[in-house]
Design a binder for these strands. Structure first.
Lengths: 343, 343
DNA sequence: TTGAAAGCGTTACCAT
DNA sequence: ATGGTAACGCTTTCAA
């Protein structure tokens, strides 16, 4: 069998050019980088030949030489989830401006995979890592290791108190604002859908929710708080359970897009009118809210800015800044059709 | 100013281990790869030290040695678009199984950026490239260059007749099936929303649409065919124009998810009932259809399979197979609530 | 202006 | 069983 007969066109090197022109590699190297010490004519000739033979500097040789890779790693729970896709896109664009390539990896929102992704990225000798924790991460050993190895790391969206820089939104305040809005709309029994309780993000958002209830003198009902796995099915069953309560909620705050969408569907399937019978506010992206019916009032996050800030923070660290910084990108409530007006 | 004072922990090399143990590098190399020619005790010691000091083989050294990078490049019009995000995710998962990393780049659906992306990837010495053409690509010079340089390439979704392997869906047949469904529902004036006419994908889908009309003896009306830029706004204005016609359409086939969503919105905003006054079928992903209201009947594409097949095809080429192959992943109509029933 | 050589981390080959 | 060394592509330093 013909195996690897048709070898791909071999990459051409400076040495090849040098040989063919009967000069030294170092001369070629200088010429190609526009350093002086090369006669104009020779320079022209070298450049012409490089162009002609399609010479491209081998980035691996330079990486080896300088122990630098111009590469960063990104770990997200699910690249196909709209929210993450936008952040990844913005990280990439920002990184490109500074000559960095991104290796995107997907943890499938699972802690073990997350550790694998990090392993992979370290093996690639990436210069830094931007990561969004998976929802079931409770053991941070893999991140502690990064910290010890002084690998620059920036967390986004889902942070944790482990001394790593982060970019998050104002979780508590935005949840409080959202809850207040529901109260203003006349809601008396507001349910909260969240992720696992180990997630700081969930805790923060729930905190904002509880604060609003407390301030406005609305009794807190444990049975209205559902913090489980973040998934469509989980949101669906949690919401159905809520609706089956003797005293069902008249509003829902969903702290994740998936939960908001599944709640919307569950409520609709029960024949309840939104927002008349039940109001909803969710954390989701503009686009998804726009698509939903009725359009869900949502906490609007500046995804582009989250990505940009995360990369900037990482870049600082890669340049030797070892301070731990926490950036908060303010998110604000956007009213659509799933909430009742004041009064 | 303290600049790069805190250097990142230097990567440790085989040589470091060798020095510290007073042995030769080649011995360390053998030990670490489990080759024989190393005494069990020494091997243990070397492994222990490697573990302890966090040794990781430098992939750039091996790349340099073997002129291989274990890296492929992917170019998509928009990573944040649900459809693409899923394909990218599946390419990545498949590539990972074979030890390949992916460099994802985003052309912003623009031909010039597309060329830049390719340039970038070639500079990285990727071993192969999977690409979805941007909608305005009419000049294929950048792809011809790849072909000449014998860089393995696989196109997906949007292909072109330029002798490159591809993975696409059965565009014409699926459009014909969709159109037939609309006709079965009683539609007499079916509009077609497509991308630019240079796109083979648009041409194919339009062909299927026209074939259905012809076969069923429905007159073809030029004013009902709108093939412009693919974007939300363009879909919106095209649809509004259609609705303002003296004889507006009673059905729309949208050949792209964005166009389908914008059409849905335009139609709804005009107070028309779907599907009673106007039926819609669109090319979109399950998830988006599920979210839409009413849920849009759609052409269901197996995104995972598209990604997997694309990578498999690329792998073949990277292994020396230089045959040009065209894979068709069958898509089928899924009925939801935006179409009328038979009769 | 140009050339020669060392070095980055790894592996393969030959020698001991 | 172990050591020595050349080679991969590139840059840098020193010498001519």
């Amino acid at each position: 069998m013909a195996q690897k007969v048709t070898r791909l066109m071999k990459h051409i090197s400076q040495r090849d050019i040098a040989r063919q022109l009967g000069v030294n590699v170092s001369t070629v190297s200088r010429a190609l980088r526009g350093l002086d010490g090369v006669s104009p004519e020779l320079k022209k000739e070298i450049e012409r030949m490089a162009e002609e033979r399609g010479y491209r500097p081998n980035p691996f040789a330079t990486s080896l030489r300088f122990d630098t890779t111009h590469t960063i790693g990104v770990v997200v729970p699910d690249v196909a989830y709209n929210h993450n896709a936008h952040i990844v896109k913005s990280i990439e664009a920002e990184a490109r401006k500074d000559g960095y390539m991104c290796i995107i990896t997907d943890s499938n929102d699972n802690s073990e995979n997350e550790a694998d992704c990090l392993e992979l990225l370290l093996n690639m000798h990436v210069e830094g890592i931007i990561l969004c924790l998976s929802q079931d991460t409770t053991d941070f050993a893999h991140l502690e290791r990064l910290k010890r190895a002084k690998v620059p790391v920036v967390l986004f969206d889902r942070a944790a108190d482990i001394g790593l820089s982060s970019v998050i939104i104002n979780d508590a305040a935005s949840a409080q604002e959202a809850t207040n809005c529901l109260i203003d709309g006349g809601a008396k029994r507001i349910a909260f859908l969240g992720g696992p309780n180990q997630m700081r993000q969930t805790v923060q958002r729930k905190h904002g929710y509880l604060e609003a209830l407390r301030e406005r003198g609305i009794p807190i009902r444990a049975e209205l708080v559902k913090c489980h796995h973040i998934s469509f099915n989980s949101g669906l069953s949690d919401t159905l359970e809520l609706l089956r309560l003797p005293e069902p909620p008249d509003a829902i705050l969903a702290s994740h897009g998936l939960l908001a969408i599944s709640a919307l569907q569950a409520v609709t399937s029960c024949g309840l009118r939104i927002p008349e019978d039940l109001a909803i506010v969710g954390y989701m992206s503009d686009w998804v809210s726009e698509m939903s019916h009725p359009r869900v009032s949502f906490v609007k996050q500046n995804l582009r800015e989250i990505g940009v800030k995360a990369f900037r923070l990482l870049l600082d660290q890669m340049n030797g800044d070892d301070s731990v910084q926490h950036v908060v990108v303010k998110a604000r409530l956007e009213l659509r059709d799933s909430t009742r007006k004041m009064g």
